[in-house]
Amino acid sequence: MRNISDLIEQYLKHMLQDSPEGAVEIQRNDLADKFSCVPSQINYVISTRFTMEKGYMVESKRGGGGYIRIQRIDLPALKAIQYHIEQTIGECVDQSAAEGLIYQLEEARLVSKREANLLRAAVQRETIALKLPLRDEMRARLLRSMLISLLVK
């Protein structure tokens, strides 16, 4: 059985998918009531699963009538994907940012689940058994090379 965080994440993703603007506004307390959970559970899901690295922009307004707005940030067109990869990865990239980019590419269906799993395995700190900052530099080179091979045809 899936946990409550997974259910909330899937619910929000379906709302985003159905939204013509690619954005949703929710009230934290209303969503917490819907899932019979505490509002902090909603905060947790949004702060861990709807990050900039994963392709989402989140803004919130506190107080009476406050809301949380989640917007999907689309990857650039395939023509510009190499440039986007260069800008995102740069000369060095930490494991979290690399995994966020891989997640974003998988969500956009630019890489398959299997390809995403292979990319994740290749960029893990255990795989690249080097000391920092060399590890982050090697991760950037590997990731850039693999992504360009996969995406730029």
Rank of each mutant, 00 (worst) to 15 (best):
T127C: 11
E126C: 04
P39M: 02
K54S: 09
G64I: 10
Q71D: 02
L119K: 01
G55T: 03
I68G: 13
L118D: 09
S47P: 00
G22I: 08
S47L: 05
Y44H: 12
V38L: 09
S19L: 03
S112G: 06
Y56W: 09
Q41H: 06
A80V: 05
E59G: 09
V152S: 06
Q124W: 04
C92V: 00
R135D: 08
T51V: 10
L110R: 11
E59H: 05
L143D: 02
Y103P: 00
Q27F: 06
R69W: 06
R2N: 10
V111L: 03
R109S: 15
V24H: 05
L78K: 13
R141F: 03
K61L: 14
T51R: 08
D136N: 15
S149F: 02
L132Q: 14
N117A: 15
G100H: 02
Q17H: 12
R62P: 12
I42F: 06
G90D: 10
A98Q: 04
A122N: 13
E21M: 11
E9P: 07
Q82N: 09
D94R: 04
R135F: 05
R125S: 15
G90T: 09
K34V: 02
M138E: 11
L12S: 07
I68F: 09
D30F: 12
G22K: 11
Y44W: 09
